[in-house]
Design a protein around this nucleic acid. Sequence first.
DNA 1: TATGAATGAGATTTCATTCAT
DNA 2: GATGAATGAAATCTCATTCAT
Lengths: 218, 218, 218, 218
Amino acid sequence: MARQYSKGARTENAFREAARQEFAARGYLSTKVEDIARAAGRSSASFYNYFTDKADVLTALAREFHEDTRTQIAVPYQKGRPPDEAVRMAITIFWETYRDRLGALSGVFQASMVDPNFLRSWREIRRSAIDFIALGIERAQKDGYCPGIDPRMTASALSSMLEHFCYVWLAQGGDDEDSLLDEQTAIDSLVSIWYHAIYWKPKDERPRAGRGARTRSS
Amino acid sequence: MARQYSKGARTENAFREAARQEFAARGYLSTKVEDIARAAGRSSASFYNYFTDKADVLTALAREFHEDTRTQIAVPYQKGRPPDEAVRMAITIFWETYRDRLGALSGVFQASMVDPNFLRSWREIRRSAIDFIALGIERAQKDGYCPGIDPRMTASALSSMLEHFCYVWLAQGGDDEDSLLDEQTAIDSLVSIWYHAIYWKPKDERPRAGRGARTRSS
Amino acid sequence: MARQYSKGARTENAFREAARQEFAARGYLSTKVEDIARAAGRSSASFYNYFTDKADVLTALAREFHEDTRTQIAVPYQKGRPPDEAVRMAITIFWETYRDRLGALSGVFQASMVDPNFLRSWREIRRSAIDFIALGIERAQKDGYCPGIDPRMTASALSSMLEHFCYVWLAQGGDDEDSLLDEQTAIDSLVSIWYHAIYWKPKDERPRAGRGARTRSS
Amino acid sequence: MARQYSKGARTENAFREAARQEFAARGYLSTKVEDIARAAGRSSASFYNYFTDKADVLTALAREFHEDTRTQIAVPYQKGRPPDEAVRMAITIFWETYRDRLGALSGVFQASMVDPNFLRSWREIRRSAIDFIALGIERAQKDGYCPGIDPRMTASALSSMLEHFCYVWLAQGGDDEDSLLDEQTAIDSLVSIWYHAIYWKPKDERPRAGRGARTRSS
DNA sequence: TATGAATGAGATTTCATTCAT
DNA sequence: GATGAATGAAATCTCATTCAT
C-alpha cells in the first residue's frame, strides 16, 4: 500500500495526519507548526513544501471532511424510515463524524474565531448541516407536524445544539473537569430533544410558540 | 455622573468598556492590549496599572457578568407561570444577556480554548445555566412530562444550543455573510424547540428516546 | 526633635532612611523607586521632589557615610597603641561601619557595576580605606616589619578582603544558605590575617615574597 | 578547526564567546541579549534557539568554568612542595583563571546580586575555593602553624580577598581610573599576605588573635 | 508640597516563515 | 525533497519619570 504513493505524498499525508491529531488534542489555536512537524516526525521547514500555512492544512482537512461526509448525510431520510429512527440515525452519524473528525471540525471552528476566511469555511460546513435539517423540518411540516415554525431558524438552532454539544463533550472534555462521557445517554438526549422539537402537533391552543411578544430592550 | 468617580476609576472603566467592545467586535483572541488601550484612548502602559493581563480584564468582565446575572435568572420560574411563558422568559433573558454581555461571554468562551484557567471559568458559567435548566426539567418530570430523559444531559444539550446559537447570531454575525437577524424569529425558534423538548407526554409506545442501540463504532 | 525640621526635610529624611533599608534588604539593583517610596510611606512622585534619581539617594547616602566616617578611621593608630590592638580596633570599626551602613556601602558597590559614576564614587570610598591601610604598612615597614612589600598593592588586597568579607557575611548572608554568623570569630579571623600579613620580620632567606617568577601565560 | 563542527555548534559557540566578552567588558547586568547577539554577529532571535535566557548562557559559562578548573586547583599542594611555592602557585592559578574566565566569574558574581539562583551558583563556586583553602590551613596547623585560628572563617576571608582583588583589578580596572596593573606585584602582594597569614608560629604571648573583646554594639 | 495617574522607551520573548545546503 | 539554522516582526510587560491637580 505504502508503495504506490510517492515519497512526497506520504510526507504530505504524515503532516495531514499529524495536524489532525494535534488539532484534536490541543486545539487548532494552540497548535504550532512545529508541533505538527514533530508529530509527523518531519521538520517544520518540510511542512512548507506541502502547505503554505497552518491554515492551509486545516483547509485540506476541511475539504477532506466535506468530501467524505456529503454522501453519508443523505442516507437517513432516504428510505421510508419512521421519523424517530431517522433522527436517531442522523444524530448518530453526526456525532460519530464529529468524533472521528475532531481535528478538522474543532479546528475550523476555532480558526473561524481568528481568521475571516475560516469563518466562511465554517459557515459552509454549517450550511450543509442546516440545509439538511431544514429539509427534514419542511417535510415534517408537510405531514402536519410543527406548523408555523421557521424551518431555517429552527435548523440553525438544532445545528448549534449538535455542534456545540459535540464540541463540549468531545473536544473540551465535558461539562466538568471530571465528567465522564456516556455516549449513549448523550445521543439519547439529543435524539429526544430533536424528535420532540419537530414531531409534535398542535392540540388546541397552546403552545403559542411563534407568537412571542417583543423583546424587552434594545 | 463622571464627577462622582475618581479619575482612576473612570480610566479603569474606560478600559473595561473598551475591552468589552473590542472583545465583542473582533473577539478576545484577536484583540491586543494595544487595541483595548487605543479604544480607551489611553496608552497600553496605562492598562497595566489597572489589570495585570488581557486575561485579567476578561476575568473582571466575567465576574461582573456573574454578579449581574445571578439574580435575573431565577425570575422566570418563580411564580406559578405557565411553562411556555416561563420558557419564553428564560430564553429571552438569556438572549438579551448574551447580547448585552457579548464581550464577556464570547471572550470567556474564546479564551477557554487557549487558556485552561478560562476553561474552568467558562465551565462555571455554563454550570449555573445547566443547573437551572436541569431543575426545570426535573420539575416538569414531576408533573409527568418527558419521563425517562436524563435531566443533566438534556440540560447540557439545551444549554449548548442556547449558547452557541447566541454566539453564532450575535458574535459571529449569523449563518451567512449577509444573514439579517430577526430577533423575534430567533427567540421563537428557541422557545419552540425548548418547550416541545420538555413538555411532552408519552402517548403509546413511541418515541423510544432513551433506548437507543449501541453506536456503530468505537 | 521632629519639630525643628521643616516638613520637607522630614520627608527627605524618610526617603533617605527608606532607601537605606531597602538597599540593605534587597540590594540597590533590585530596589525600585516605588519600593523606597512605599517604605517611606510616600508616593514615588514625591520622591522626585527630593532626588533626581535612585542614584541620587544613593549618592546622598554615600556622602553621609563619608562625613560620618572620616573622623573615626583616624583613631586607632593615634595613641601609641600596640599594633595588634590597633589592627583589631581598625577592623572592628570597619566591620561595624559596614554593618551599620550596609545600605550605602553595598548599594554603592552594586551601583558601581552598572553605572560608571558610581564606579568613581566607589573608588573614592575605597581609596580612603586603602590610603589608611597603606599608611599603617609604611609605618610598620619603618619599624622593620614586612620589608619589600608594596604598601599600596598590599593595602588594596587587604581592603578587598575587608570589603568583600563584610559584603558576603552582612549583605549576602554568608557562605552558605544556612550559615550562621559568629561576629567574633569573623573579626578574629580578619585580625589574625591582617596582623600576621604585616607584622612579620624576615628570619633568614625565606619567604621570598616579592620575587615571584613571571606568571605562566599571558 | 571550524570544519569539524556543525553550523549550529559554531553558532552556539559564537554566542557563548560573545557572552563571555560582553559580560567581561560591560558586566553581566548591563549586557542585553541584543548586545550578545550583535557581538556574535547573529540576530537576537537566533540566540533563543540555543539558550533560554541571558541567565542560561551564564550558567553554561559557569559550568564550563567549573569543569575546567576542578582539575587544576588540586595541583599546587600535591607534591611535597615548600609552602611558599605552593601558595604562589595556587594564587597564580586562581589569578589566571579569573583573568581568563572573567566573563563567567564576574558574570555569576553580578548575577548573584539580583537573581537568587545565581547566588546559589556563586556560593558553589566559592565553596570549592574555600574548601581548598581551608584544607591547606588545616594541614599547616598540623605542622604547628597558625594554631587557634578558625580554618573555614580564615579561608572565607582569604577567598574574599582573592576574589575581590581579582574582580577589582581585572573586571573593574583597578583602584583608580588610571591605575595600571602590574600583575607581578599584584600576585606578589597576595602571596605575601596569604603566606604570612598562615605560616606563622607563636613566639611567646602575642599576638592574641582569637581572643578579641566583644564588639561594641549589636 | 504631595500625589494619582499616565506614559515613553525599552527589553524580552515567541513564532511563522525563509534560505542555504 | 528535506532540514538545520536564521530571522523579521510582533506582542507583552516593566519602570523610571513626568504632569495636572
